Computed example of a mutant assay.
Amino acid sequence: MSAPSRRSQRERVEESSRRLAEAAIELIAEKGYSNTTAQEIGIRAGYSRAMVRERFGSKAALLEAVLSDYEGRIEVPQDPRTSGLQRALAPILALRDFAAEDPRLLRAVLSLNFEAVHDHDLLRERIQGWLTRLQNGVRCAIADGKVDGSISNLSDAEEVASELLATGIGYAYAWILDPSHYDFEGALTRWHDRLVTRLTGPA
């Protein structure tokens, strides 16, 4: 029987970064950003009290890395080679793929987003700002889709973008409440397909 292969330095760094990210999200969801310390994050992740500073420099830098990764995966793509319809609906598919690839981390980040409603610090402002950018991106993509012919001229860009954001938040909340019984990936796929039919209807 062969001995298990040793993990590379890169794999160990990725693992520690992931565990720190999960610990940070869990603690902030429980206690709020201001009441969570870098030392607590390191201990919750199973490392030393100084691990957050060694790996990221500060609690703020760790949270920035986590949120930037999450937001970057869900953003509206800017690729001009794709249609407005594809760009407008891309966040739905990105969210679905994220749920398939890393459901634990996604649920933690989504929980943090919902908990931020009760905060009045920079975390809440950060999340509000990102949701606004996401909605604006969808609206612009829909407007582009009406120009390139991939979206019906009857579709109102502002209305659809606002509805898409609100519906996505609703699906995410349902999944957070009961992840073992709610088919999040299936719900997102069916929602995406319904929107394709709706947005490509008669002009």
Rank of each mutant, 00 (worst) to 15 (best):
A21T: 14
A21D: 02
A21W: 00
I25L: 13
I25G: 01
E26W: 03
L27Q: 12
L27A: 10
I28V: 15
I28W: 14
A29P: 08
A29L: 07
A29K: 06
A29Q: 08
E30W: 12
K31H: 15
G32N: 09
S34I: 08
S34K: 11
N35Q: 14
N35R: 13
T36H: 09
T37N: 13
Q39G: 03
Q39C: 02
E40D: 11
E40V: 01
I41D: 09
I41M: 06
I41G: 14
I41T: 08
I41F: 01
G42P: 11
I43K: 12
R44C: 03
G46Q: 13
A50T: 13
A50E: 10
A50C: 01
A50P: 11
M51H: 08
V52H: 00
V52K: 01
R53D: 15
R53Y: 07
R53I: 12
R53T: 15
E54R: 14
E54T: 10
R55F: 09
R55W: 08
F56G: 05
G57F: 03
G57Q: 07
G57M: 04
S58G: 08
S58M: 07
S58W: 03
A61S: 12
A61N: 04
A61I: 09
A61Q: 15
L62A: 11
L63V: 14
L63C: 09
E64H: 13
E64F: 03
A65L: 08
A65N: 13
A65C: 07
A65H: 14
V66Q: 10
V66L: 15
V66E: 09
S68N: 05
D69G: 05
D69Y: 07
D69S: 11
D69N: 12
Y70R: 01
Y70L: 03
E71C: 05
E71P: 00
G72P: 11
G72L: 07
R73L: 03
I74E: 06
I74P: 04
E75W: 13
V76S: 06
V76M: 05
P77Q: 11
Q78S: 14
Q78C: 02
D79S: 05
D79K: 09
D79E: 13
P80V: 08
P80A: 07
R81W: 01
R81G: 11
S83Q: 08
S83N: 08
S83F: 05
G84W: 03
L85D: 11
Q86W: 11
Q86S: 09
A88K: 03
L89D: 04
L89Q: 05
L89G: 01
A90G: 06
P91I: 07
P91G: 04
P91F: 08
I92F: 08
I92D: 06
I92K: 02
L93W: 07
A94M: 00
A94F: 04
L95S: 05
L95C: 00
L95W: 00
L95D: 03
L95A: 02
L95P: 00
L95I: 00
R96N: 10
R96Y: 04
R96E: 15
D97N: 14
D97L: 09
D97R: 15
A100L: 14
A100M: 13
A100Y: 06
E101A: 13
E101P: 05
D102R: 03
P103M: 00
L105N: 01
L105Q: 06
L105M: 10
A108I: 00
V109W: 12
L110C: 05
L110H: 10
S111P: 08
S111M: 13
